[in-house]
Design a protein around this nucleic acid. Structure first.
Lengths: 332, 332
DNA sequence: TTGTAGGCGTTATCAG
DNA sequence: CTGATAACGCCTACAA
């Protein structure tokens, strides 16, 4: 490994001058600077980031800790984060928690130990991991889900309002027994979507019934089973509000197996506008969340903190958009 | 920031002993060890990974450099990598190149500068970035696409054979003018799929015609346009082989706009078995690639190198599976 | 403008 | 088994 002192030696200068020349910081005699740059090129010198960061006590790396790399909602967030971070010279490390508090904690520890500059995370719920960051005053932004103690910049989507709107929409289409399939209890977005669903029922003078609600993990398999379960009841729901797109896959599979057609037999609205939603027959009505914007905004907030802004933490709530397609209208 | 010497001081031992106790390496008097551990806990000590890695000259982080975080094929690879890496105590950094050689190079440089333990990448084609790794002898595994010079462990899928098989399948279903939509020239998987398509035509005594082939980037928008283009010709194709699932979205959109029904009007087979493929009407025939296995195998190979295996580089070619659904059969 | 020298936090070496 | 001490590679006072 060639080090800066190799470069310095070859250029016949001190390591200090070499460092200065390479970083373009303080003023260096152009002649010497040229010699240094030439030497560096000849030796194919690459700075050792570890040493540099150890010295500078910071790393130009941001951690983005999310609960599912395979969920398009989160990968869209990742793009938003990455575009902004890149532009500012930061790299982004994507970490996958699988909704497990233990993994989240582990990744937070990694972020701390590697002295990463900041963390963007969608908290799994339990606050434990976050306290570590708070204690160390590592800049942090919460996305998608708020943090309990919440002296933290946060970017959310108004899930509850969106769920309410979707539910009202289903009611207006004439569906009577509207069911809801949401994520695990304790996961804030799942709770919010359920609350919004109940708001919607109330607004349209419907009674909410526990038998119309199922909670599973935010994945296809659970939703599939839950749907079969819901629809095998005596008075099954004639519409479903589904809390994310992975679950929607399971729901639609189940409906197909039961030979029920979305829209005609069972109204369906799902969160997240996946690229394939419009391809289905009938096309799937969705609640489109501004995922890319969440990511880019979160990154922007984090960068502001990194450059020393000491304003009070803000919470931004973006709104989602109901995109009505035919899975939620009474047409056959 | 509390350092190891704080811990040592509080436990009344030297930093050396503290380090040993904390790492459980060499044998330490149980009494002292206990004091150290207690002190560390009381001070909420977190080791500084930078310093440790600088000293150890290695980092327990692997870089996974892929061309598109939003492509389910790559996220599935990521899971495979992550599961294996995690189990071995490594963290995984996911980097997104957007198929741009410049970004690839940048991430490779980051990986080198941060002294990451190894790199798994799906090369964009140009070899430049890879040479950096070779020169430094950073352990590396190529996935999905081979490397030119190729003294490197590689995990591939037999795209060509799979494309051939898919094409033959379409021919056997009675489609006469089979077209092909593939990725950019120079991207190996795109070239292979095209070659396999031509193999398939040849095997079924069909002539290949340039007018039945379109190449665009591996994304939905380009495929959409290309499909409109292909089908607006005098003698349009009656079947299409599509090189990935993002492109399939664009193709299916275009078909819907033209009021053409997959299977009946235009046979369609696409690479990658996305979770939604079976939900479409008609369900989409796909070439399922073993993405998770690619990732886990690649990670395993990399870990072997890290632990000092000096065997010759291997190239593993996994096979893909044609999953026949109704988009490629003549039923209406 | 340049060079010298010290330290970032850890771990490895080598005496004791 | 323990403790000084010397690196790891880089950056930055400080002095020249």
């Amino acid at each position: 490994m060639t080090t800066i002192s190799d470069v310095a030696a070859r250029a016949n200068v001190s390591t200090a001058t070499a460092s200065r020349a390479l970083n373009g910081k303080s003023s260096v005699d152009p002649v010497l600077a040229a010699r240094v740059v030439a030497a560096a090129r000849e030796l194919d010198y690459r700075p050792n980031g570890l040493a540099r960061n150890l010295r500078r006590r910071e790393t130009a790396v941001l951690a983005l800790i999310i609960s599912d790399v395979e969920n398009p909602f989160f990968t869209a967030i990742a793009r938003g984060v990455e575009d902004v971070a890149q532009a500012a010279g930061y790299s982004v490390v994507l970490c996958n928690t699988d909704e497990e508090a233990a993994k989240e904690r582990r990744y937070v520890e990694v972020a701390i130990e590697e002295q990463m500059a900041g963390v963007i995370l969608s908290p799994t719920g339990v606050a434990s991991a976050v306290d570590l960051l708070r204690d160390r005053q590592t800049p942090m932004v919460a996305v998608d889900r708020p943090l309990p103690g919440a002296a933290t910049d946060t970017v959310l989507v108004d899930s509850r309002q969106a769920a309410r709107q979707a539910t009202v929409h289903l009611a207006e289409q004439g569906y009577e027994l509207i069911g809801c399939l949401t994520g695990p209890s304790g996961v804030r977005t799942a709770d919010d979507r359920l609350a919004g669903y109940r708001d919607g029922l109330r607004a349209t003078k419907r009674r909410s019934a526990a038998r119309l609600v199922r909670r599973t993990e935010y994945r296809s398999a659970g939703a599939h089973q839950a749907t079969l379960d819901l629809l095998s009841q005596p008075y099954p729901p004639d519409a479903l509000l589904v809390a994310n797109s992975a679950m929607a896959v399971g729901v639609l599979q189940a409906l197909a197996e039961l030979d029920l057609r979305p829209g005609r037999d069972v109204g369906v609205v799902a969160f997240d506008d996946a690229p394939w939603a419009a391809l289905l027959d009938p096309p799937l009505t969705v609640v489109a969340q501004p995922a890319y914007e969440i990511g880019s905004l979160a990154a922007q907030l984090l960068l502001n903190r990194l450059t020393g802004s000491h304003t009070d933490p803000t919470t931004t709530t973006l709104s989602a958009q109901l995109v009505i397609r035919r899975s939620s209208t009474r047409h056959p």
